[in-house]
Design a protein around this nucleic acid. Structure first.
Ligand SMILES: [Zn+2]
Ligand SMILES: [Zn+2]
Ligand SMILES: [Zn+2]
Ligand SMILES: [Zn+2]
Lengths: 163, 163
DNA sequence: CTGTTATAAGATATATTATAACATTCGCCC
DNA sequence: GGGCGAATGTTATAATATATCTTATAACAG
């Protein structure tokens, strides 16, 4: 259907093929939902797809506007319910400091990563940051704190934009 | 004025004298504002005092309700402007994951700490977490990311509540 | 004192984000 | 096809935040 990138060409400067990104994320989501016996309904699938249109964080009401061509009757609850589901399944992250949502690029694994949020291009990079998490765990131990969920959100300029 | 705690008594179980907390925070705020040549006006001072009533994060509209006996004409903008000022001066932190605000217990020094947010008692503990910040800095270096501001917010149970 | 500038606060309206509550429909099992 | 729970439709409203325009006040220069 779409012209695929020639796999023989060296592509040193293009860090990723976004179509592939989206495809992988959706396939993974479908797989995980089947495995877990939960329903990735049409609306939920559409919302996930809309979130994955870019690596930028998307606002709930932006999603609402963008889903209307597909779901004419969509209301805020339509979006928030889909988001609740996707968050519960770990398929998207909420970016607390933006009141926005971004696709999770590692839905299979552990969650609670480091989010690097670019002020310029608005893209959000997710990183496991294993060492950070480990040192953080030690800090909790010292503080006598039993952590349930963590959000590490950093605003700044990404590699591309820092020039 | 207030009965001071006898410094000779061992106080093993009371971790802090909150009146002292508040007093120190307000004095520090006044000092810093003078040093910086910015105005800690009556409204700003009152808002800061209200925020320091406890170590819980406070919502903007709670502050609005609570400032009305003092400022009958207060409107949302009254509070948000005061909060903007206090945030800019590093005198309070915004807790992104709660849309709420908490007094900064180290206004003098560096900012961007780790916030440990208790689900039970709702108190927020602020920690410098120097080692975490250092490892995080290394992570940014690897990612080629130029960090401007960070928020590390962890929800869970604090020492007192974890039992 | 008076004009000028800058900052703060008052006032009104509105934008943005999120949830509650209840009705209806859908998919599935029996 | 009847019953059940999950998902969605629908309406209303709550909660959070900002924009804009006006008025007041302080600091300072001429
Ligand atoms: Zn991509
Ligand atoms: Zn960027
Ligand atoms: Zn205290
Ligand atoms: Zn607690």
């Amino acid at each position: 259907m779409n012209t695929p990138a020639d796999p023989m060409l060296p592509v040193p400067e293009i860090p990723h093929n976004h179509k592939q990104c989206v495809h992988d994320a959706l396939k993974m989501a479908e797989l995980l939902c089947v495995e877990r016996g939960v329903q990735l309904t049409a609306i939920r699938h559409q919302v996930l797809e809309l979130i994955w249109e870019s690596h930028k964080a998307v606002k709930a009401y932006e999603l609402l506007d963008r889903i209307r061509p597909l779901q004419a009757a969509a209301k805020p609850a339509t979006i928030y319910r889909a988001l609740d589901f996707l968050l519960a399944q770990g398929l998207v992250h909420r970016v607390e400091s933006l009141n926005a949502f971004v696709g999770c690029s590692c839905s299979g694994h552990q969650h609670e990563q480091l989010l690097l949020i670019c002020k310029q291009c608005e893209e959000v990079e997710e990183r496991m940051a294993a060492e950070v998490m480990q040192v953080l765990a030690e800090e909790f131990r010292q503080a006598g704190f039993a952590a349930h969920s963590k959000a590490i959100e950093v605003h700044g300029l990404c590699k591309k934009c820092v020039g």
